[in-house]
Amino acid sequence: MTSNNLLKQSSPNVVFEWLQGQFKFIVPPVLALGSLLFIWQLLCGGETPPLPPPTKVVTEAWKFIVDPFFDNGGTDKGLGRHIFESLKRVGIGYSGSVVIGISLGILIGTNVLMYRAFDPIFQVLRTVPPLAWLPISSAVFESFKESEVLRMLGTDAVELSAVFVIFITSVWPVLMNTAVGVQQVPQDYRNVAKVLRLSRFEYFTKILVPSAAPYIFTGLRIAIGLSWLAIVAAEMLKGGVGIGFFIWDSYNSGKYSEMIVALFYVGIVGLLLDKVVFYISKFLVQTDS
């Protein structure tokens, strides 16, 4: 039988066969989730449980589950809208860290003196947790509160300090990984460039950046995770719209069910962000093996 025949015969069943193939990947996590929910239900089944059991969470927070995009004005909005606001902040902060992290990374990666000068400082700064940055950024941006520039940009000091925290948290992995990636350009590739007498610009675009790309993308993946971690922290203290604020607000008002649903949303969005960066890197980066 030729392979062509084989395909034709099986085509009506293709979907079914695919599902069959995926079966072993779907069933185990579903079972695991089920049993975790069951244990939770058992643990929180008493009179006054510390947390509501799953069944209660679903009934109490039903409107947040079924309609993520309602808007009743003020802070009474669907979770989708909160997340959208948070994503906007992350977008700005993360973009900043990508641009500045990669450029600074290349700069100190290609210059030994710069690397020696700044590396120890960066090593210290990168370990500072997001929440520790918050007071500093608040203090700094508070002083610009009345600034015309801020008004023209259509933003305010509170907003800016939240974005800054995201930026400062996520810039380090991008920067450090880029610097290392640039330093690790294999001697062979450098030799190729030398023998062909590539210009500086060509060396930069054809050799340096593509060769460092796997490192850079590793940094970007770590950074996106960190910035999502930071947003929740930043918003909790800042107020307004955003998923971090929503969780903090729900806690303060004792709406534990809503808080738990929001938690799921945060987790899923974090996972999606990570996957997005991963697939972009998979698409762009060509490695040796």
């Binding site: 062979d188 590739y189 030799n191 190729v192 030398k194 023998v195 062909l196 007498r197 490695t287 040796d288």
Partner: peptide
């Protein structure tokens, strides 16, 4: 170095991208 003396390296050194 220059292209008049082109080198073939042991580990081929092709650009993977």
């Amino acid at each position: 170095p220059g292209p008049d003396r082109m080198m073939v390296f042991q580990n081929h050194s092709l650009l993977p991208w």
